[in-house]
Nucleic acid binder design. Structure first.
Lengths: 166, 166
DNA sequence: CCACTTTGGTTGCTTATTGAAACTGATGCT
DNA sequence: AGCATCAGTTTCAATAAGCAACCAAAGTGG
C-alpha cells in the first residue's frame, strides 16, 4: 500500500508542537450541536427525547454527540431519577465546569446578537430573580482580566495542581 | 406509517420560540476552526498565511471562515500595519469581547484535558509574568457566579442597554 | 527590467459528516 | 393486549470538509 508515512502529527525527535488546551477543548466541545446540548444540560434537560425535541436535532447525530460527551467524561448516564427505568444524561463535574463557556457564549450573544425588543429567555440570578448581570472574569485577587494584559508564553510543562490556594 | 404531523418545530401563529443568545452565538462561532482562528487572532496573528500555517487549515476553508467572521463583524480587514500592501485581519470590538469565550475554553482545557507534565504554551498574565491564574466569573458586586445559582427565566423582551451601572 | 517567490485567494474533485426518514426493540400506559 | 413513547440504529441523499492545482497581484534578487 502506498503512502507509508502520512499521519505526521508528531515525529520522534522533532520538537513536539506543544499541546494547545484551546485546541483540545475545541476538539471536544467546539461544535454547534455539542454547545447546544450543553446549554440544554445546564437548563436541566436530561433525557434523550427532551434533547431531541428541544434542539430539533436528528436522532443519529444526537446519539453520536451524547455518546462522545459520555466518552469524554462530560456527561454520564444515570438510572433516571424520575421513577422510569429510562436512563438520564447528566453533567459530570468536568461537564459542570463548562458552565463558564456557556455563560461566555450567552453573554456575548446577548450583548452583540440579540436586538433590543427581541423576546428571549434570560438566565436568571436566583439570588435576585433578575436577569443575570454582566459577569466578568476576575483573578483570585479580585482584579478584572483584560485581553491586553495577557500574552502567550513559551512552552513549558503543565505544572502539577498546586494545592496551595491564593 | 404516515405520521402526517411530525416536524412541529414552529407553527404559524404559535408562540414564537424565543431567540436563544447561546444558539445565535453558537451559529457564528460554534465551530472548531472558528474557535481556533479566534485563538490565533488573540495571540496576535493577523495575516492569511499566518493563520494558514498556524492552523494547517485548507485555504478555501480559511478563506470562507475569515469572510464569515468579517461579515459577522468579528474581524475586519486593515491595510496591513507592516509596510506591505497586503491587508490584515484584526479583531473588532465585538470580536475582542469573545476573549472570555476563548479563556473559558482554555482554562477548562488546561484543567481537564492537559496531563501533568505535558508541554504546552500557557497564557501569561503580563502583570506578573506568571501563567494566568484561574479566573472566575464575578457579578458586578464581586460575588462569584455558580451554576446552581442560576435558572432559565420566562421569555421577555431584550431590555434596552441601561446606562445605569451597578 | 526580468525571473522567481510569496500572498491571498478560487476552482474542481474526492472524501467525510450531516440530516431526514424508516426500522427496531424495549418500556410505559390503559 | 394494544398502542404510544423512548432510545436508539440503519440507510441513503445532500452538504461540508479537505486536497491539489491553478491564478493574478505583489514582493524580492540580480
Amino acid at each position: 500500500m502506498p503512502d507509508p508515512d502520512d499521519r505526521r502529527e508528531q515525529h520522534a525527535g522533532a520538537p513536539v508542537p506543544p499541546t494547545c488546551p484551546v485546541m483540545s477543548a475545541a476538539d471536544l466541545v467546539g461544535d454547534r450541536w455539542t454547545l447546544l446540548i450543553l446549554r440544554d444540560a445546564f437548563n436541566g434537560i436530561r433525557r434523550f427525547s427532551q434533547f431531541q425535541r428541544s434542539l430539533g436535532i436528528a436522532r443519529n447525530i444526537l446519539s453520536a454527540r451524547l455518546s462522545s460527551l459520555v466518552a469524554a467524561g462530560i456527561l454520564h448516564t444515570e438510572p433516571g431519577a424520575d421513577g422510569t427505568s429510562y436512563s438520564a444524561y447528566a453533567l459530570t463535574h468536568k461537564g459542570i465546569e463548562l458552565f463558564d463557556l456557556i455563560v461566555a457564549l450567552r453573554q456575548w450573544g446577548e450583548r452583540h446578537l440579540i436586538d433590543d425588543g427581541t423576546v428571549y429567555r434570560p438566565l436568571l440570578d436566583i439570588r435576585t430573580g433578575a436577569p443575570l448581570p454582566r459577569v466578568t472574569y476576575m483573578r483570585p485577587d479580585g482584579t478584572p482580566l483584560h485581553h491586553s494584559e495577557t500574552r502567550l508564553g513559551e512552552p513549558r510543562p503543565m505544572a502539577t495542581e498546586e494545592p496551595s490556594s491564593i
